[in-house]
């Protein structure tokens, strides 16, 4: 089955042209309702209801342990891998309840890509890192693989740096390059949503700037949800920002509003650096 180039199917109407400011409300791509999550006895998320719109960058901010990463990992059900996790409430992506018993988590993860805090390229060549993802989903022809590898690396702004050494180990790349390779790998299979869990936290400022440029570029094609502890970063790249505190969603709004005119005291304290 050829899956890598299938059109992105979303039942709702397309959002307006890419790169827009938060515009008129469209049908949300991700919608959570009364979502709660427990690790054993500890409650990590409390009653989260939120909407995330298509082709925008949504940033999750908040102090450590506030549940922002946990929530992110709910969207592709990576929390399934952790023993003793219990979720209640609903998450709908493009209208479908992703925790429903009929949902195939593999299919979900194919359509909701993820980039991790720590770059985690496979100990294979640069080329094989991306080809692995493609082969998983049925692309086997060499020429198609080569095409998509190149396109993904170009999209991730890595092509010029690695085109002469595609078959060297991915571990020989610098930290920033490794993280861009992981992004290239994630977008190679054309997900609809890209989850990023503090993708630049382990990088130096220059590498961080490149990743941020890349995110702004990628939002033309993907819906991006990014967890960050860096408020300037959230302000620079996101359209919407959600602020979490101790497992609660305190406030969510257009980024400019959150940073200039928050409605909650806690949010104001946090964005002005009074705590956290």
């Amino acid at each position: 089955m050829e899956t890598t180039h299938r059109p992105i199917v979303v039942p709702a109407a397309r959002a307006p042209a890419p790169g827009n400011e938060p515009g008129p409300p469209a049908e949300p791509l991700i919608k959570t309702e009364a979502l709660a999550l427990h690790y054993g006895q500890t409650q990590a998320l409390k009653n989260i209801s939120m909407e995330i719109r298509e082709r925008m960058v949504t940033a999750f901010i908040g102090p450590s342990g506030c549940g922002k990463s946990t929530l992110l990992r709910c969207f592709n059900r990576m929390n399934d891998l952790i023993h003793n996790v219990r979720t209640t409430g609903q998450i709908r992506i493009a209208g479908q309840d992703i925790n429903h018993a009929d949902v195939d988590v593999i299919e979900l993860r194919k359509r909701v890509g993820m980039v991790f805090q720590r770059s985690n390229p496979f100990p294979k060549s640069i080329y094989e890192n991306i080809a692995y993802a493609l082969r998983l989903h049925g692309t086997r022809a060499r020429s198609r693989l080569a095409d998509i590898v190149e396109r993904s690396l170009r999209q991730a702004a890595l092509w010029e740096e690695v085109k002469d050494r595609l078959h060297t180990s991915a571990l020989s790349l610098s930290g920033g390059q490794q993280q861009r390779l992981c992004i290239a790998r994630a977008i190679a299979i054309q997900p609809e949503i890209l989850l990023m869990d503090e993708p630049a936290s382990a990088l130096d400022p220059i590498a961080t700037a490149r990743i941020e440029d890349l995110i702004l570029d990628l939002k033309k094609e993907f819906t991006i949800v990014i967890v960050t502890h860096n408020m300037q970063q959230a302000a620079r790249i996101s359209d919407h920002t959600a602020f979490f505190y101790l497992g609660d969603l305190i406030e969510m709004n257009a980024t400019s509003t959150i940073f200039t005119n928050p409605s909650m005291k806690q949010t104001e304290d946090y964005v002005t650096g009074r705590f956290g």
Partner: peptide, 10 residues
Amino acid sequence: MGLQRGHRAR
């Protein structure tokens, strides 16, 4: 295209 391919698919 839905998410429901299910475990039976494999």
